[in-house]
Simulated scan of single mutants.
Amino acid sequence: MSRRNPKGREINGIVLLDKDTGLSSNAALQKVKRLFFAKKAGHTGSLDPLASGILPICLGQATKVAQFLLDDDKRYFVRGKLGQISDTGDCEGKIIQTQVFDHLSKAEVIEAAMSFKGDILQIPPMYSALKKDGQPLYKLARQGIEIERPARPVSIHEINFISYAEGVLTLEVSCSKGTYIRSLIQDIGDKLGCGAHVIELRRTGFAHIDISETITFSQLEQLATHDYQQLDAHIFPSENMLPKIDNICLNAEQVDDIKHGRVVQSDVQDKAYKVKLFDQNQTFLGIGELSADGLIQPKRLFV
């Protein structure tokens, strides 16, 4: 590939990556960034190295909307092993306790899993990217330090039972942002009195995105050409990734004001919420915040 600009290409948009297992989200991000030779890139919410599945990679100015993608719901396929407790909550950690589980019936296991459907309080795992005094919890955990974590409200929208055999529970879970599937499997194990940990995890849904819309890194490598044409065909416009945010079209004067950070008056007067801003040519300008009295405050602009 031609690399005329040593700093990278000015490309904008989102690549829907199907991340492989065994790869950290940051490592996946860096691989995609190098392949596209993008000047700037970021991901929207990390996936554990154990986990595979949807990881939206934002290129260029699309990094400015990453925070808005994070607010959406997720869907996961998960397999949990009963009777074994891991220090990390998954199979990458060390088994620190085993308990009997073969006395449990399939009906009991299903009932325990389904009891977590709805609005619940969940304690985040120590092995997570959450921070305490600026320090990620997983770094403290690696030092053998465990701190108290307050329970946080999350929503489990759906739990679909798939199978249970030989101590392995398989589910599909639809949930709100901030939900830890490792904690969910641990909580199910605790409720059954035998413990549990995740042995397989795959993110199959992200907001309106389905796993069928994604592409693997190896597929991207095969598409790579000297002019990037085939690669760039897999970059989605940022505005397409935010279907739940309403559109507002601005006139030329309003566009000039917004670009200079000034508040503009809209004809829409309803309630306060975020909006996608477009100019008269339907060019996406970024995200604004509309107040109940119709004022639009620029938030994250592509200018």
Rank of each mutant, 00 (worst) to 15 (best):
I188R: 12
Y164C: 07
G195R: 00
I123N: 11
T179Q: 07
C175Y: 06
S86P: 04
Q135G: 05
L104V: 07
V109Y: 06
F101Y: 08
A113I: 03
C194K: 01
T179P: 11
I147V: 06
T179G: 11
I85L: 13
P150C: 11
K131W: 05
F161G: 10
G189H: 12
I85D: 03
Y127A: 02
I145P: 04
I145E: 01
I185L: 02
L130T: 09
Y127M: 03
R142H: 00
T179I: 12
L121E: 15
G178Y: 11
L121N: 15
E108H: 06
K94D: 11
P124L: 13
E108F: 01
V168G: 05
R182C: 06
D190N: 15
G167P: 00
E172Y: 09
S86Y: 03
I181V: 13
Q143G: 00
I147R: 03
I185M: 01
D87V: 05
E108D: 08
K191T: 11
V100R: 15
K191N: 14
F116M: 11
Q97F: 10
R152V: 11
K117N: 08
D119E: 15
G134T: 09
G178T: 03
M114K: 15
Q99F: 09
R142C: 00
A113G: 00
H103M: 01
S183D: 03
L137V: 09
S176I: 06
R182W: 03
I96W: 06
S128M: 06
G193F: 04
K191H: 13
I188D: 02
I120P: 14
V168T: 13
V109A: 05
I156S: 09
S183T: 15
E111V: 05
I159G: 04
T98M: 01
G178D: 06
D87N: 14
V173Y: 13
Q84E: 11
E158G: 14
I162A: 10
Y180D: 11
K139N: 12
I188L: 08
G134C: 02
L121W: 12
F161C: 12
R182N: 06
S163K: 12
H157R: 15
P124N: 10
G89R: 03
S174Y: 10
L171N: 01
S105N: 02
D187W: 06
F161E: 13
E146M: 00
H103S: 09
E111Q: 15
I110T: 10
S163Q: 12
E92K: 02
K139E: 13
S86H: 13
F161R: 10
T98Y: 03
L140H: 02
G134D: 06
L130P: 08
G93F: 01
L140A: 00
A113R: 04
K94P: 08
Q135H: 05
C175G: 05
A112Q: 10
S105A: 00
I156G: 06
K177P: 08
C194S: 08
Q99M: 04
F101M: 02
T170F: 07
G193Q: 03
I120F: 08
I162N: 10
T170M: 02
G118S: 10
G178C: 12
T170H: 01
F161V: 14
I85P: 08
L140K: 04
Q143N: 00
K131N: 11
I147N: 04
I96H: 02
C194G: 11
G93Y: 02
I156N: 07
G118F: 13
I96D: 01
A107F: 07
K106Q: 14
S86I: 03
L192F: 12
T98E: 04
